[in-house]
């Protein structure tokens, strides 16, 4: 592990999802941290420069849309955001992109796909392919 590997924040209120995504990404060579709701994610983003955010939609205290809006407007983070929803409802994807997400997916996201997407969004930052 070196400090040059991309740092990913996994934001989800479901512990299994957090654990799974974190394990997959760290086995693929990413540095990972986790947050259990949008508010924690904003706080984490104020304290560290993340290279990628993987954000759930439905969470207590602060939902995914508000979290991404806050990351963009108040924290001013330019890093890519992948939003992952549990169920697909009409208009959700539009809302995610309007909030500032770069990609909107519906669960479950197979681990290989998540890792591939993470590599695409952090290309050039030194992750082994």
């Amino acid at each position: 592990m070196t400090e040059t590997q991309p740092l990913v924040l996994v934001v989800d209120d479901a512990a299994t999802v957090r654990m799974y995504h974190c394990t997959m990404l760290s086995e693929a060579g990413f540095r990972v941290r986790e947050a259990a709701n949008g508010l924690e994610a904003v706080e984490a983003a104020l304290g560290a420069a993340f290279d990628l955010f993987v954000v759930d939609v439905n969470m207590p205290r602060m939902d995914g849309y508000t979290c991404v809006e806050t990351l963009r407007s108040e924290v001013g983070t330019p890093a890519p955001v992948v939003m992952i929803s549990t169920e697909e409802r009409p208009g959700d994807a539009d809302r995610a992109y309007a909030a500032g997400a770069n990609l909107y997916l519906v669960k479950p996201v197979p681990p290989e796909r998540l890792v591939r997407i993470a590599r695409l969004f952090t290309a050039g930052r030194g992750v082994p392919a």
Partner: peptide
């Protein structure tokens, strides 16, 4: 410690020295 674990009533602010 992190306030967002405890309560949403405060707003986190970034300073050069930390949160």
């Amino acid at each position: 410690e992190s306030m967002s674990r405890i309560s949403p009533i405060f707003k986190p602010i970034r300073l050069p020295e930390g949160i």
